[in-house]
Design a protein around this nucleic acid. Structure first.
Length: 472
RNA sequence: GGCCCGUUGGUGAAGUGGCUGAACACACAUGCCUUUCACGCAUGCAUUCACGAGUUCGAAUCUCGUACGGGUCACCA
């Protein structure tokens, strides 16, 4: 049987890195087996729909190299791929389940449900629907549905234990008594997620269901549905949760977790994908840098871990800087220059100057937007931190600086070579070398203790600015 | 509260009974290189795997209990 996986987001107009991570795993499992990767839009909650969200999802996945074989924008024989366009299907299957005796019509209103909930709350026991409507004779219920509001609920076994195998978590057992007669079809005619999911996964031929482990406990309910219909159950692959650095679940409220936001900050999609796949998965030889194609080759879902993964910006930065170092200059310009232009006035700078600036920072960048902070010495006045101030208090500093200022002012042909010569002359005349030679100049001229090659920095600052700073 | 899952260094993690005197990576420290810092290279960094008991010739790995963390219990997905 051909392996088929699906990415099934709700169209909220936002792509969380956690969602993206699931999509990557789903994509890899499909492609590893020469299978299909499908996009299905889960918009059964009408309130959450955001205009343009589908295109946004396509765009994000496409940037990351995740191409869908089927989906709302590229068709396929199992469509439609948007749940709100499949409503009749869910209705049909829900009623079929009632006729088969695995579900029933329920007429309980919110008021009664709330009272029940409150009662359970007071007794400090978990709330479960009491199954009142289960006892209504089918004949009677069928008459009532034409005039009354109703939902369809799944009939759960009250005894015994449900057991299933998860590819990463192993054998999972859940007592049937905790399973609620969950709603399959809402009173507005829409299916619940739990129901639509099973119907679609089956109808679309999904063989591997990949999702977060928050569904670990709900899975027996899905299996019961598959059994009720007599359908073959899929392979389940539950992914460990992704926590933030504080150990709490990654939430949408944190700005740093949206893919687009990272992308706009100058993180490279390849690097983001590479980083995300490491969240909960490791390769056999502990290699960490992979292209998507390489991942397809080495990925093994059995190596997905069970303990929660931790979203670590430092590691992301490291991986991203690794990819940046391999970038050609044109690409690098693309992810840095727009940020520079937004922040600083580049009108009097030549293209050549900008290109040189970016290239000397290539090995120092974690992400594109960081260029703004790293290069602020070229555009703004300096402000020295305590460490710099302390350093400049040392004996030889003022002498070194005045000699260097002299040497700089003598330069007629302003280039890196002549600047290096000036530095060298300063070494001899002021009789200082190494750190005591370079550091005072670097601090005075650039305001920081770490940076790219000093002569390059000075060259780009320009003679005038350098002299002015040496004076102050 | 019931149920489910997890707990390895500063951080991310490998590891499912002996080849682990616990990999690898990030971070950090030191050294080399470069007439500085950085980059790069090299070296160092967990008497020990949440805690307690048990099984075993042998346990981070299996069992039980405790603690802590997270998840889940909707006409949300």
């Amino acid at each position: 049987m051909k392996v088929r996986t699906r990415f099934a987001p709700s169209p909220t107009g936002y792509m969380h890195v956690g969602n993206l991570r699931s999509a990557i795993f789903e994509y890899l499992i499909a492609k590893k087996n020469n299978g299909d990767f499908i996009l299905r839009i889960e918009d059964t909650d009408q309130e959450r729909y955001v205009e343009g969200a589908v295109d946004f999802i396509y765009k994000t996945c496409s940037l990351c190299g995740l191409e869908f074989d089927e989906g709302p924008n590229n068709g396929g024989e199992f469509g439609p791929y948007i749940q709100s366009e499949r409503l009749d299907l869910y209705k049909k299957y829900a009623h079929e389940l009632v006729d088969k005796g695995h579900a029933y019509y329920c007429f309980c209103d919110e008021e009664r449900l709330n009272a029940l909930r409150k009662e359970a709350d007071d007794k400090k026991i978990p709330f479960l629907y009491d199954g009142k409507c289960k006892s209504i004779p089918l004949e009677e219920a069928k008459k009532r549905i034409s005039s009354e509001k109703y939902v369809i609920r799944q009939k759960m076994p009250k005894e015994g234990v449900s057991v299933y195998e998860d590819l990463v978590y192993g054998t999972i057992k859940v007592e049937n008594s905790v399973l609620e007669d969950q709603i399959l079809l809402k009173s507005d005619g829409y299916p619940t997620y739990n129901f639509a999911n099973v119907i679609d996964d089956h109808l679309m031929g999904i063989t591997h269901v990949v999702r977060g482990n928050e569904y670990l406990m709900a899975t027996p309910k899905y299996n019961l549905l598959y059994e009720a219909f007599g359908w073959q159950k899929p392979t389940y692959i539950h992914l460990p949760m992704v926590n933030g650095e504080d150990g709490k679940k990654l939430s949408k409220r944190r700005g740093d977790t949206s893919f687009m936001e990272l992308y706009e900050m100058g993180y490279l999609p390849e690097a983001i994908v590479n980083y995300l796949v490491l969240l909960g998965w490791t390769s056999e030889d502990s290699r960490e840098i992979f292209t998507l194609d390489e991942l397809i080759d080495v990925f093994d879902p059995k190596r997905i871990g069970r303990s929660p993964a931790c979203y670590d910006v430092k590691k992301l930065n490291w991986i991203n800087s690794f990819y940046i170092k391999k970038l050609d200059l044109e690409k690098l310009l693309e992810i840095t220059v727009p940020h520079l232009e937004k922040q600083y006035d580049l009108k009097d700078k030549s293209d050549e100057w900008v290109r040189k600036l970016i290239s000397i920072y290539k090995d120092h960048l974690s992400y594109g937007k960081q260029i703004v902070e790293l290069t602020k010495m070229f555009f703004e006045d300096l402000s020295l931190d305590d460490e710099c101030v302390e350093f400049l208090k040392q004996d030889t500093v003022s002498d070194t600086l005045s000699v260097f200022k002299d040497e700089i002012s003598k330069i007629e042909d302003w280039n890196v070579l002549s600047i290096n010569e000036a530095i060298n002359n300063t070494k001899n005349k002021a009789n200082v070398k190494g750190k005591m030679l370079y550091m005072p100049i670097r601090i005075k001229v650039s305001g920081v203790m770490h940076g790219p090659e000093l002569a390059d920095t000075i060259y780009l600052l320009g003679k005038e600015k350098v002299l002015k700073r040496l004076e102050g």
